[in-house]
């Protein structure tokens, strides 16, 4: 199977502090890859490097075949990103946000129109299509942010704690969206703190103090650490963490 992310010894230092310490892994096309770790373990830093938002200190990585040092702009054409902070425009309406991001990804008027209609229908947002985002509940906004992040049909979408602060029902709906995107062949790279969500992933990695301490399917990891649930696996690993937020 084609590999869409390959990282080798990828490292980011801030002065003396090693945020991400020589992580090596790859992600296959169409996979849902869970990226776990306690707060401050270095997940967001790693993800920002992979998205071309942060320059690595050392190591190598290729995203969709493009080098993360020299070809960041090509990478950006093929990835979607949803940051921890909600980052659509609160003072624009649902349709205006879709049109804007569609526009700067270079979609045609026609494509934007079609995708926008389909998306609003799918998310059941037609009654609020012309409402400013600032007056919508967080769960709705997060679903919209995800849909906007994959509007240009990227090969990979990076999701940084997409369901933080969202209620369980909406969380479930959010994962339905993720499965739909994965079914279309979009690779999902997701960080989360919810262990039930970890179980939804094809493979997961667990980071502790900037290092990648475990990597495998949920079943493999449970067997490896002789645990019944993913929760236990996480405890066993994260307990040893020295970095506290």
């Amino acid at each position: 199977m084609e590999k869409v992310i390959t990282a080798h010894q990828l490292t980011k230092k801030f002065g003396q502090f090693i945020a991400t310490n020589a992580i090596t892994f790859d992600v296959k096309a169409g996979e849902i890859f869970g990226f776990l770790g306690a707060n401050g373990a270095g997940k967001t830093t790693a993800m920002r490097m992979l998205c071309g938002l942060s320059k690595p200190s050392s190591g190598e990585a290729k995203i969709a075949g493009y080098d993360i040092y020299t070809q960041t702009e090509s990478i950006k054409q093929h990835i979607g990103y949803m940051s921890q902070k909600f980052s659509l425009y609160e003072d624009l309406t649902v349709t205006e946000n879709i049109r804007f991001f569609g526009g700067i990804y270079g979609l045609s008027q026609q494509q934007i129109k079609e995708k926008s209609d389909a998306l609003i229908q799918r998310l059941e947002l037609s009654s609020v299509a012309h409402t400013l985002l600032s007056s919508l509940p967080l769960g709705w906004k997060q679903k919209l942010a995800f849909s906007v992040a994959i509007l240009h049909e990227p090969k990979i979408v990076f999701l940084d704690e997409p369901t933080g602060g969202v209620d369980p029902v909406t969380r479930r709906q959010f994962w339905d969206l993720i499965y739909e995107a994965a079914a279309k062949g979009i690779t999902i790279f997701v960080t989360t703190h919810y262990m039930d969500e970890a179980e939804y992933c094809d493979r997961i990695s667990i980071m502790v103090d900037g290092k990648m301490e475990a990597l495998g399917t949920p079943l493999e990891l449970k067997q490896q650490f002789k645990a019944v649930t993913m929760d236990e696996v996480f405890y066993i690993l994260a307990r040893g963490a020295k970095r506290i937020e």
Partner: peptide, 10 residues
């Protein structure tokens, strides 16, 4: 944080 969303576009 919206600039992040812009910076990740091409």
């Amino acid at each position: 944080g919206t600039i992040e969303q812009i910076n990740v576009t091409p």
